[in-house]
Design a protein around this nucleic acid. Structure first.
Lengths: 238, 238, 238, 238
DNA sequence: TATGAATGAGTGTTCATTCAT
DNA sequence: GATGAATGAACACTCATTCAT
């Protein structure tokens, strides 16, 4: 009997938490472990321990390690999108919106470098990426940018032949390249200057020619005015 | 005796090739296997078999699987750099040079998507990347682009406040983003249009304001002059 | 389906034994394999098969092959110590105790030559031996002998300048040397005579000079005294 | 041609030394490497490099790694025996000779702990040890001690029932046990005191009973003398 | 529903020895 | 005789996943 009591005492406290809570715990633990170790090095046993469950329990909610990663990233993305949505709503003006999106993306990478890396290194190269929910979320996430570009094209602020998708690749690709060193833990980057630099380049590259060099326009307006005046005097004469 | 014969029969024909040749064989085999399977899935035994050597022989020349990958990539980069060097020499004009570099890089990815992926996915995220020879080679490889930008800044063709390194990140980042779908084997990309689009965006983003649409301004000024002259004569007449 | 059946057929019958039982099975198997093949030649796969588990299961309980060896030896030592303790309790008299310890140690080697060898050849030369649990167990195991010596010194039966630790080294070293031939499987040794020979040598080497033939001298002195008294009285009379 | 010269320059300088010199070089290198790394960890390639030869050359003179070890040890033993022979010649008196042999053996271990260990750990446990030349050399080496014991038995200094071989095992076994800690690099030992202690124990354990406790004998002689005197006086009376 | 013991496939690496040159 | 490139066998260890209890 004494032995039995001992065994019972040793037994992990079985607690029946609502599934949602369990899932949240597991995902939080998984997020932390994936961030610390990367996908390959992360151990299911580590995640289980940190979540306060046994390995088997993880498989009740997630088909496998990969799905766990995917779900963690999906959650992160979802939250990201909502947050951006809210903040973006108050932005006015193409340049401001552009700069905001770039700035926020850089900020996201700075706040969650590990998760960003997991997307870049593990998820995106995967053959099943297109077709995945993460792909779809990324679409939504980056759509804001293409929307801004498209809108500016329509108002004539941007060239009619500008390619929103190319702009998207340029912005996100540039940011990624620029932050690899940071993602490798080799030191921080200058967020504001980088955001300004990118926004500036992109804006200049897209802005309509006629709108572009305002002084030329001004001069032309002057000329037009003079002509009008001349024409006006001629009319008076005619 | 039967056993002995069997053993003897199993023995691979021993051939003593010069080390260089062996190394080349192994690297060729490794390149092929890495390209087909990716780094993780590639088996040393596969590589050995394809190279016509036993596994142990690989370790005479390469410390481990990782070094083998690195050496394969290094060789590839080296050849790339030399090839570009040659072809680039005859390019004249900033825009042409820009377009050439972009076009060639896209071509490289199309010709060697697997090796490109290995760099993006395996080598670049590695904590030891900075400090590796591949990092250095990539520096050299991308230097052509920053040189072009710097030169154009000096001649005044590009804005004085343009950032060559940002341009580099923008170009290579954009290309990478644009080609991920292709790298995932989801279909080809439009090389020429992509090259044109990127070159155009970059050029417009960098060109000096005063120089910007030089012909346009000139032509407008001419038109204005003519109009003024016309107006003037009209006035004189009036 | 046929393949699936094959796979299923291959699957070992899964049985969930209590951990203690599993550990015991594995240690028993390991003990046997180590004894048969020696440490180097022993294969984990052999041990697993003999224990009726897969290799991976061994690593649930033992960090590595070395730890498995150590644990097997520890268990053996522990049992040894307990057994000796019990049997030794009834021994009276220094010589008897000495002889008992020597005899038992020889017996242990005869019963478990393979494990003895593993200690002599694998564990004791190891840089980490001191500080290991086996070292501690060996200390306890050999302490009986030094205790006997110390006790005999205190009663004056043994010389005051005798060194218990030297006696220990002499006894165990001698036994080891004497049994190497047996440990090499070159034939048995004469247990009783060896035990007697060692006990005798050690006893003679340690016993106090004055105490040596204590009764003999005393009795002779008494006799002499009586004779002297007798002679004295005779003289007085004479 | 330039390349050929380069290759030629890289080629190891081929020198034809007399075989004896080669063998000596290899054995010296092997001794050093075995001592540093132990048998298992020692690499033939290391030995070859240190000896200034290629691996293949070692196999011209030694059948395999094991033989190389054996030959190194044999040489060492041979030199040892000769040295002892010379020094021992001048020793007079059983105790002195005993003490000398013990002292010299301790000295040998202190001077060559690594080689000593190789004998204890690698060679002696080997199934082929008996029958090996090293076994024979060890016999010769330890014969000095049994000779001394035998001689002392013959002169009556030692008990007639003393066992020379047991003494041998006791002496060498004790020394070995005593020095394991040193052999494990855990600190030095007190050579002189150890030698004295062992010699003393052994001598006392072996010396004839009649010779044994000289004071007892003396006292008995005194008693006897008194008795004789008493008897003498009685006789005078009688 | 939770547990966690058991599974078992999978592979990079070492190095003594050989032998073509 | 010397070289040293090539051989190739051999094996401990990991860990995601399953499933009996």
């Amino acid at each position: 009997m004494a032995v039995e009591q001992l065994v019972r005492a040793k037994r992990r406290k079985v607690s029946r938490l609502p599934a949602e809570r369990r899932i949240a715990d597991i995902m939080a633990a998984a997020g932390a472990v994936f961030a610390e170790k990367g996908y390959q090095e992360a151990l299911i046993s580590d995640i289980a321990e940190r979540a306060g469950v046994v390995e088997g329990s993880i498989y009740r909610f997630f088909a496998n390690k990969r799905e766990l990663l995917v779900r963690v990233v999906e959650d992160w993305y979802q939250a990201l999108i909502e947050e951006e949505e809210e903040l973006f709503a108050s932005m006015r003006g193409t340049w401001n919106q552009l700069r905001f999106i770039i700035h926020r993306h850089l900020l996201t990478i700075r706040r969650d470098p590990a998760l960003s890396r997991l997307v870049f290194q593990e998820l995106r190269p995967d053959p099943g990426y297109r077709g995945s929910q993460v792909f779809e979320l990324n679409r939504i996430y980056t759509h804001k940018l293409t929307d801004v570009v498209r809108a500016a094209i329509e108002t004539g602020e941007f060239r009619a032949d500008a390619s929103p998708s190319l702009v998207r690749d340029m912005v996100y690709g540039c940011i990624e390249h620029r932050t690899w060193s940071f993602l490798r833990n080799e030191g921080d980057f200058d967020l504001d200057n980088t955001a300004d630099g990118i926004a500036d380049m992109i804006y200049r590259g897209l802005v309509s020619d006629r709108a572009k060099p305002p002084d030329v326009v001004e001069r032309l307006e002057e000329v037009a005015a003079r002509l009008e005046r001349a024409a006006g005097s001629g009319q008076e004469n005619g």
